[in-house]
Design a protein around this nucleic acid. Sequence first.
RNA 1: GUGGGCGUAGCUCAGUUGGUUAGAGCGCCAGGUUGUGGUCCUGGAGGCCGCGGGUUCGACCCCCGUCGCUCACCCCA
Length: 425
Amino acid sequence: MTDVTPLQAPIGTRDILPGESETFATLVGTFATMAQRYGFGLALTPVFEDVGVFHRGIGEQSDVARKEMYVFEDRGGRTYALRPEGTASIVRAFVQHHPTTPWKVWYVTPAFRYERPQAGRYRQHHQLGVEVLGTEDATLDVEVIALAWRFYESVGLRRVTLLVNSMGHAACRAIYLEHLSAHLSAHASSLCDEHREGWSRNPLRVLDCKKEECVAVTNAGPMLNDFLCDDCREHFAVVTAGLDAVGIAWAHAPRLVRGFDYYTRTTFEFIAEALGSAQNAVGGGGRYDRLAEQLGGEPTSGIGFGSGIERLMLALEAEGVALPAPALDAFVVDTTGGTAGLALVETLRAAGLAADRAYDGRSMKSQMKVADRSGASVALLIGPQEMASGTVTIRDLRNSDVADRQHSVTLADVVSAVREATNRA
RNA sequence: GUGGGCGUAGCUCAGUUGGUUAGAGCGCCAGGUUGUGGUCCUGGAGGCCGCGGGUUCGACCCCCGUCGCUCACCCCA
């Protein structure tokens, strides 16, 4: 017997359907426009990669690599992973293709992490982002942050806090890590349950811990900023001065280390204050001056930014921001049972107008209800009378003024009549 | 990986101490005479009460398991 148990989307995933997919599409469209405006080209890379791309990229000791990756073996025995974030694949592509630098690309992609789902956290979510490879110019960091900032601004998100920090480069951070490790080692017994034993695996992660015990220990310990070399200090100064110069408000977050191991120097995060939950970071990024090397390429500086689309949608909703959704221009109501309605919607569409109609020979009243629900600006009525006279009755569906709500136009004038009615809005 | 809450119509939810044919609002469909939406009125369709097992004369209700949703921790977008 066939199993007819209804199938459903996997745990932690969800369908984004008409009603909210318009918002999704608008966000992607807006980001695409802005990225293009900033000189970025679209990069499409596979959603799965050799696990090495991510292990070497985001760090074997990061939480994402250790326990959140979807890893699988294909029929040829190769071990792949669904991408948990966007940057590593882009850098892999850079290393593989040797494009001329600076290489500026943007992307939109699903990202997968095996975690327990929760508000604003899914096993598959979507990210928008940009990456730039091949320059360590600190003013570029400002541009990348600015692009993100302007993007949030232009989609209507208002309560955003930008946190920035510098993690130093390999050498100065190594020195800091020695001091930090020494400090953590001396106070290990005072750390939280998780880090008491595990701090040495990735000392920087302890800085990210929100537990009181850990915060107390790390606050009393060495601070990363005090160990920055002159170059890194200068780089950070240029970034912050640049943000000031372009009018972007920022706050220094000395404890901001972020979850991936590849970051060097500039790191930043955008907090959506409207999201009350712990998952309030809508976007973040930073510089990664070692990543290309780790993926087998020439040493190449890079910086990127990624933003979670679902979280951004939640934040917008929390702020009561509704993005305008594209609407139909005209809805054709045809009660003649022939092909007049079909021909008319096709004419309208060919003219660049959005048009739809009803099916299954419904009554005029029924078709009018569908027209109303469709959100179309006008209804175009074709009945026996119109058929006989070669005309169409155009009816305004938005305004309820009694006078002049509908009138007759010839078939030849329908397109211009719809345009006129639509623009009148 | 750990812990809490919850699974009844398409949606949001009622359902009395376990007791006949499981309800409401919204939505959907059809009508309210002679071609017209958004308001109003009338009618209708639609539920293995998540799934499996147990207790009982009898289970939407109680018990166990299971699947799923949700929230939190951790971490992140």
